Lab assay of single mutants.
Amino acid sequence: KAKLLVLLYAFVATDADTICIGYHANNSTDTVDTILEKNVAVTHSVNLLEDSHNGKLCKLKGIAPLQLGKCNITGWLLGNPECDSLLPARSWSYIVETPNSENGACYPGDLIDYEELREQLSSVSSLERFEIFPKESSWPNHTFNGVTVSCSHRGKSSFYRNLLWLTKKGDSYPKLTNSYVNNKGKEVLVLWGVHHPSSSDEQQSLYSNGNAYVSVASSNYNRRFTPEIAARPKVRDQHGRMNYYWTLLEPGDTIIFEATGNLIAPWYAFALSRGFESGIITSNASMHECNTKCQTPQGAINSNLPFQNIHPVTIGECPKYVRSTKLRMVTGLRNIPSIQYRGLFGAIAGFIEGGWTGMIDGWYGYHHQNEQGSGYAADQKSTQNAINGITNKVNSVIEKMNTQFTAVGKEFNNLEKRMENLNKKVDDGFLDIWTYNAELLVLLENERTLDFHDLNVKNLYEKVKSQLKNNAKEIGNGCFEFYHKCDNECMESVRNGTYDYPKYSEESKLNR
């Protein structure tokens, strides 16, 4: 008799109507990190870190770059004969040098303040090359056809396309004075040089004057150069050297050249137009028929994500570079809930034993079982409120962090190594801060989002509990077992918050 009662009780308990509160689960393989956990499985997430590029040089917003090819900045601007293909260059979106560009200054020497000139050019998007001192009329008392084997072109001695090597005419090199007034309405880049012979005999042979000088002056520039005559090792078949100089001439300003020898005179100059998204990159990537809004030396990035880990040097509207390998923000729920887990921000989770793959029309909802059958029903209101809140948060985070910009490298010469090392340390410090901030932001927001979901499920549970009161009992896994019969209409009233407690209280009292 006792065995019969136990079996009867078990049958009745199993047959009781139930309603459970749960949440969506799926077959997603997404994982995120939080402050407290690593690799948390979630139903949905968004990636904030771009880690792919196309490996190509592309047009930037429809404008092609200027590819210097086998030449570098120095060779292009001075007019190395091997860089003749660059003479027609007028406009570009950015400038590309190759790491091993070999054609710079063909006659050995240095372009002074080269690093600063590169910085200036990094904001130039177009130029006009014009004859600042016409070759045939500007130097009537001097020979202007100086050439050298060091600047050979097609097997013949030649010289820079933008400079003139002035030497004596006959047996004399009379003092020369020439000036140019900038009437271009924009900055003009003027380049010139000073020749330093290897011996007094060479000085006399070329310029006749043993104590020659070169003077260059404008409103913002004033220097006097004296040739340094000295024996030097042979470089590119030359014992002599040429140093090259430049200045930016403001609109309306005048530049005056005065010399008694050794002047490498300007022939062509450049009127410059600035462009905020221009820059110089060093890259071996090849040019393709493609378009982008962000270019790196590795390749083009076409992404609206706020961060990238491809390269710190970028041109155009680019994500911020960070050292992170993963920045994924959760938008959905835990896919593998932890039992009795309390989140960092106070939300209680884990009283549900598992997510439901059968509930596909919402994030949170119900599963019921009664004599009429069983089924899932999503709670659309709480789901939609959660979707709206999380979507707004993700968009806000992306908008705040998605300050796209150009980031170019800084140039230092060989004598500025300590400054370069200090600059690298400062840049590394800023990069570490950006990386830390980005990672911390994602970790915190992921923790908040998961706790937010847990709290929403808990609130749904409490909503049902407050309606049923003692007409049902909690069975410990997020479910309630009714003390009365609850048909589909009754189940719907529980879900929509209109459950009639008094209607079922007498039946429940008897069954309790």
Rank of each mutant, 00 (worst) to 15 (best):
E228Y: 13
G109R: 04
A13E: 14
E37K: 06
E202P: 00
V149T: 04
A10N: 11
N72C: 10
I21C: 04
V40P: 01
L86K: 02
Q203L: 02
F133W: 10
S123A: 14
E277W: 04
V124P: 00
L5Y: 07
F130A: 07
Y9M: 07
P266V: 02
F144V: 08
N211F: 11
L117D: 09
G69V: 02
Y180R: 00
P197R: 06
N182E: 08
T282K: 09
H53Y: 15
R90D: 06
L206N: 02
T18A: 00
Y9S: 14
S208R: 10
C20Y: 02
R154L: 14
I256L: 10
E102V: 13
T282D: 04
D15Y: 09
E258W: 03
I281M: 15
V46C: 05
N211T: 03
R154T: 13
V214D: 07
Y94T: 08
L4A: 15
S218G: 13
E128N: 11
V149M: 07
E82Q: 10
E37P: 00
H153L: 06
C151F: 08
P108E: 06
T98C: 02
N262G: 03
S85T: 09
K168S: 13
D30H: 13
E37S: 13
L4P: 04
L4R: 02
G75Q: 04
P266A: 03
A269E: 02
A231G: 08
Y213I: 08
S158A: 14
C83P: 06
K61V: 00
T247Q: 05
S125H: 08
Y207V: 02
I35W: 04
R241H: 08
L78K: 01
S215R: 10
S150K: 05
N222Y: 15
G210T: 11
S101L: 00
S137G: 15
N262Q: 00
S205I: 11
P88V: 08
A41T: 11
S278K: 01
T254Q: 13
R232T: 01
L189E: 09
G75L: 07
Y213H: 14
V147P: 03
S200V: 08
N243C: 04
K61N: 15
G22Q: 04
G109S: 06
C83H: 01
T29V: 00
R224K: 15
S273H: 12
V96N: 05
F144A: 13
E115D: 02
L263K: 02
K3P: 13
V12N: 05
S157F: 03
P233K: 13
A25M: 06
E102M: 13
K184R: 13
Y245M: 07
R224T: 02
G75P: 02
R161V: 03
P227L: 10
P233V: 15
N26P: 03
A269C: 03
D113Q: 13
A265S: 12
I35E: 03
V42Q: 10
P88G: 12
D15P: 00
A271E: 09
R224L: 14
R118M: 01
D51P: 03
S93D: 10
L164E: 07
D33C: 02
L263P: 01
D201P: 02
H53G: 04
E277Q: 07
E131S: 10
P174Y: 12
D17T: 02
T247H: 15
N243R: 12
E136K: 00
L121S: 03
E128T: 13
S200K: 07
R154N: 11
K1C: 12
E277T: 07
R224A: 09
V147A: 11
W76E: 07
V149G: 02
W192V: 10
H24F: 01
G62A: 04
A64F: 10
I95M: 08
A231R: 07
R154A: 11
P197Y: 10
A212Y: 02
F270I: 02
Y173R: 01
L48R: 07
I281A: 03
I229W: 00
G109Q: 05
V96D: 06
Y160W: 11
Y160N: 06
H153F: 03
R90P: 02
Q203G: 00
D171G: 06
E136H: 10
D110M: 11
G22C: 07
G185K: 14
N243G: 07
S52H: 13
E116Q: 07
K38D: 02
D253I: 00
D171N: 12
T148R: 02
V40T: 09
T31Y: 01
E202T: 13
N54H: 04
L272R: 01
A10G: 05
V124S: 12
S218F: 06
A212N: 14
L78N: 11
K3M: 08
E50N: 02
K156D: 07
V190E: 01
V190M: 07
F130Y: 15
F11E: 01
G22Y: 05
L166R: 01
D113C: 04
D51N: 14
L60V: 15
P233F: 12
L66K: 07
N182T: 06
T74E: 04
V32G: 06
Q203D: 02
T43G: 04
A10F: 14
S150I: 04
L49D: 15
V42W: 11
E82K: 04
Y245I: 09
D17V: 13
A269R: 00
P251T: 02
P81Y: 04
P197V: 14
D15K: 15
G79F: 04
K59Q: 10
C20K: 11
S150V: 07
D15T: 09
G279I: 07
L60R: 03
S150L: 15
V46F: 14
K186N: 15
V12L: 04
F159N: 05
G62W: 06
L8S: 04
L248Y: 00
S179F: 13
G62C: 05
S218M: 09
T74P: 11
D84F: 05
S205H: 11
N262S: 08
T260Q: 13
K168P: 00
T98I: 02
N72M: 13
G279N: 13
Q203I: 00
Y9F: 15
P197D: 08
G279A: 15
S219W: 00
L66R: 05
W165F: 08
F11H: 03
G69A: 07
L121K: 05
S158K: 12
D113N: 14
G62S: 12
E187M: 10
Y221C: 01
L36S: 15
L68F: 04
C106F: 05
G261N: 01
I19R: 02
K56V: 12
S179N: 14
D33Y: 12
T31N: 07
S101W: 07
L57Y: 12
G210Q: 04
H44D: 11
T18I: 13
R223P: 00
I63P: 00
F144C: 11
T29K: 07
H53V: 07
D33F: 11
N80C: 05
T18V: 12
G279P: 09
Y23I: 10
N222W: 04
D113H: 14
V12S: 14
P233N: 14
N220R: 12
L4D: 09
N80Q: 07
I95K: 02
N220S: 12
V32E: 01
C151D: 09
Y244S: 05
D253Q: 15
R274Q: 11
K3F: 12
P65G: 12
K135R: 10
A265W: 11
V190H: 05
D84M: 06
Q67E: 12
E202M: 10
I229Q: 11
I112W: 00
Y173D: 09
G146W: 06
S93Y: 07
N39V: 08
V149S: 15
A265P: 05
L48H: 08
T282F: 09
Y268C: 07
Q67R: 13
K169G: 10
L87N: 03
C83T: 03
E115P: 14
I256E: 10
